[in-house]
Amino acid sequence: MEVDRAKMADLGLNMSMVGGTMQVAFNGNTDAQYRDGDYEYDINVRMDEFDRKSVGDIEALGFVNNRGELIQLKQFAKVIPSEGPSELQRQDRIGFCNC
């Protein structure tokens, strides 16, 4: 993905907002938990795989800017299909790919 940071800023977004939203969309967020008696289960909230299969789906990903407006990714970034490592692991706080 190629981000036009100037355009992103003009639209009222920053990398923290965009990165956080994309992290939740693709990897999920387990901040919520369900408790059943003595057991606790993480609830992983993320976009359905069906809604993130194509470049068009990803380009339509929405972000709410600092003015409360809905901005789509395609308004400030170009999505470029590519392949990469399926998992990034950290060892001694250094990222490496176990490919």
Score class of each variant (00 low, 15 high):
1 M>A: 15
3 V>C: 04
3 V>F: 11
4 D>H: 05
4 D>P: 06
4 D>E: 07
5 R>V: 14
5 R>P: 05
5 R>E: 12
7 K>I: 08
7 K>W: 06
9 A>G: 05
11 L>T: 07
11 L>Q: 00
11 L>F: 01
12 G>F: 01
13 L>G: 00
14 N>S: 06
14 N>Q: 01
15 M>H: 06
15 M>R: 07
15 M>I: 11
19 G>N: 03
20 G>Y: 01
20 G>W: 02
20 G>I: 01
20 G>F: 02
20 G>H: 03
21 T>F: 02
21 T>D: 07
22 M>V: 11
22 M>F: 11
22 M>D: 03
23 Q>V: 03
23 Q>A: 14
23 Q>K: 11
23 Q>C: 10
24 V>Y: 04
25 A>Q: 00
26 F>S: 02
27 N>F: 15
27 N>H: 12
28 G>K: 09
30 T>P: 00
30 T>D: 15
31 D>K: 11
31 D>M: 12
31 D>N: 12
32 A>Y: 11
32 A>M: 13
32 A>V: 12
32 A>H: 10
33 Q>T: 12
34 Y>P: 04
35 R>F: 09
36 D>Q: 11
36 D>T: 07
39 Y>D: 13
39 Y>Q: 13
40 E>A: 14
41 Y>A: 05
41 Y>M: 15
42 D>E: 14
42 D>P: 08
43 I>L: 15
44 N>Q: 09
44 N>G: 07
44 N>I: 12
45 V>S: 15
45 V>T: 14
45 V>P: 07
47 M>D: 15
48 D>K: 13
50 F>H: 10
51 D>K: 09
51 D>G: 02
52 R>M: 02
52 R>F: 05
53 K>E: 15
53 K>Y: 13
53 K>I: 11
54 S>H: 04
55 V>E: 08
55 V>L: 10
55 V>S: 02
56 G>I: 09
56 G>L: 13
57 D>H: 10
59 E>Y: 04
60 A>S: 15
60 A>Q: 12
60 A>H: 06
61 L>F: 10
61 L>I: 13
61 L>R: 05
62 G>V: 13
63 F>K: 00
64 V>I: 12
64 V>G: 00
64 V>W: 03
65 N>V: 05
66 N>Y: 04
67 R>S: 07
67 R>P: 01
67 R>I: 00
68 G>H: 01
69 E>W: 01
69 E>D: 14
69 E>S: 10
70 L>Y: 06
70 L>W: 07
71 I>C: 03
71 I>S: 00
72 Q>H: 08
73 L>N: 00
73 L>K: 02
75 Q>V: 00
75 Q>W: 01
75 Q>P: 00
76 F>A: 01
76 F>G: 03
77 A>Q: 02
77 A>K: 05
77 A>W: 02
78 K>C: 01
78 K>N: 10
79 V>W: 00
79 V>D: 06
79 V>P: 06
83 E>S: 09
83 E>R: 11
83 E>I: 09
86 S>I: 11
86 S>A: 13
86 S>N: 09
88 L>K: 08
88 L>Y: 06
89 Q>L: 14
91 Q>R: 12
91 Q>H: 10
92 D>W: 02
92 D>G: 03
93 R>H: 12
93 R>V: 08
93 R>S: 13
96 F>R: 08
97 C>F: 09
97 C>Q: 09
97 C>N: 08
97 C>Y: 07
98 N>V: 02
98 N>D: 12
98 N>G: 04
99 C>E: 09
